[in-house]
Design a protein around this nucleic acid. Sequence first.
DNA 1: ATCCAGGCTCCTG
DNA 2: CAGGAGCATGGA
Length: 310
Amino acid sequence: MNTIRRHLRPSPPFDFAKTLDYLGSSAGTVLEVVDDRSYRRAVRLGGKPVLIQLAEGVSRSDSAELLFEVTGEDLQSQDGRRAQEWVRRTFCLDAQVDELAVAGTTDPVFREVLEQCWGLRPVLFPTVFEALAWAIIGQQINVGFAATCKRALADRYGDRLVVAERSYPMFPEPERLAGLSEADLAPLQFSRQKSRYIIGLARSVVEGRLNLEELQQLPAGEAEERLTSLMGVGRWTAEYVVMRGLGWRDTIPAGDGGLRRVIGRHYGLGRNATEPEVRALAERWSGWRGYAALYWWYILQREERKSRPG
DNA sequence: ATCCAGGCTCCTG
DNA sequence: CAGGAGCATGGA
């Protein structure tokens, strides 16, 4: 076991504390260890299990600095490079977010959102497969319960990485899930329908019908189309994965229940916004609709955390 | 009990 | 092709 350390400089504005606060309070964050100043998570990079650790460094002037560590078995410099690229991509460290400010100038409601979210960065899923599985698990059930299901899936079928006498869970590989039957997931409180979708997805990957590497190379619209052709993946799921798994910044899951709720509330509709309404509104965030979605979820989380602590 | 929760598929008219 | 029923689960 050895560790490689680096310093990373995110493009400003970057508010690590805010990003961690949101990430750590999100129900779906079950495989990460997050506190108010650091992040830890075990992932496979190039097939090799590693522990990624991030902490805030000394901030010079206005640009924050991140301390980054990767720990694993017999790490070479190329592993360090690979891990660093993974972090830059997963935490969107190179995003030129200041362009987004323009979208707020004509919309007082969204300007308020922008101010509260300034510096908040999206955190992508470690893999597209995990994003897809999480989106399917989360369909039409409350996110707390979805988190329970995800955790159970990882505990039962995922590998673990032990570093410094501490054990970190990893999300199951498609190969592992492809061999399961519906009966295997029933004890984890997956509905039959969801079990079918998840297992079918894993098999698609293993059998090569769904090439996740290739998916990364496609334009957002084509990736969305490709995803929607899978059983169990509708428009919401595809858009969610394009945004949170593939990292496209201009894709918004407009049918999302949470978005419809928070947007309806803030624009004074007295009801949930409809999907077409969200889509129409999102035109004004064009170029950054995915960031807008993130920001709205952040607002929603804060509002609903206040009224329902825990 | 009843309604809801970060939908999807399939079937109508 | 738009709209709605039916679907599975657990939680409030």
